[in-house]
């Protein structure tokens, strides 16, 4: 069966790469005494696959992984066990299991949501921020939201494509490129980027954004 789980990597863990995470999760599964299904070959590895890599240095509240196990495994038992065995700053927050085959996370996830918090030194009009994003490579952004949270604190939500969709001549959202552009914009407008993190990942289902857990029935 497959356990799909969602985990966050916060604080220092943002500096761990995709390959690091694969190794860390594999070892944590082993530490937790969970019998992962093994790949074939002379160097059998636990079968774990991850969602799309995110840039080094970016925190995430919504990383996904699929773990294949040979025997039945209860999802909430899994969460409890693995969380006791993960390094600091990496925590599993949700899990669901299924007996059916799943398409790989990387092949199904279409959209990744990044939250940016901007802080203003001087007054700035929200529309100005909005028009900056609208003017940015719009074919790489599925949708965005911008709102003032408090006076001088703004929250931007950027839903970027992580995949090129056949029916849609979009481009892939590149976090680092956007971040550089946003930084430039912020600097010249008396703003600074207080934080940025990945907060969700979605599958597009009939014009709707669906959680990757929906695949697990």
């Amino acid at each position: 069966m497959i356990i799909r789980f969602k985990y966050c990597k916060k604080n220092e863990a943002r500096y761990l790469s995709h390959l690091d995470m694969l190794r860390i999760l594999s070892r944590s599964v082993a530490r937790a005494g969970i019998e992962a299904a093994l790949s074939r070959g002379f160097n059998p590895k636990p079968r774990i696959t991850l969602s799309n890599p995110i840039p080094l240095g970016v925190q995430s509240l919504a990383e996904y992984a699929d773990l294949e196990v040979d025997a039945y495994l209860d999802a909430s038992y899994f969460i409890k066990k693995i969380n006791a065995c993960l390094p600091e700053n990496i925590t599993v927050i949700a899990a669901a299991s299924t007996e059916s085959k799943l398409k790989s996370l990387m092949s199904v996830i279409d959209i990744v949501l990044y939250d940016f918090i901007l802080e203003a030194v001087q007054n700035i009009n929200l529309d100005k921020i909005k028009s900056f994003i609208a003017a940015y490579d719009s074919s790489s952004i599925y949708r965005f939201e911008a709102e003032a949270q408090q006076k001088k604190i703004f929250l931007l939500k950027i839903y970027g494509y992580v995949k090129i969709l056949k029916y849609n001549s979009n481009r892939i959202f590149k976090f680092n490129d956007f971040n550089i552009a946003l930084k430039e914009f912020a600097e010249s407008n008396g703003l600074h980027i207080k934080s940025s993190k990945k907060t969700a990942a979605f599958i597009i289902k009939q014009e709707r954004l669906a959680d990757p857990f929906e695949e697990v029935v």
Binding site: N11, A13, Y15, L16, D20, L56, G57, P87, N89
Partner: peptide
């Protein structure tokens, strides 16, 4: 603190070398 190390690590190769927080810290 975290913000200070974050600023120091910007653009540094293999930042994972400098962050600690591994499993088994004593």
């Amino acid at each position: 603190d975290l913000a200070e190390i974050g600023a120091l690590l910007e653009g540094i190769q293999k930042p994972g070398r400098y962050i600690g927080k591994e499993f088994g810290i004593k």
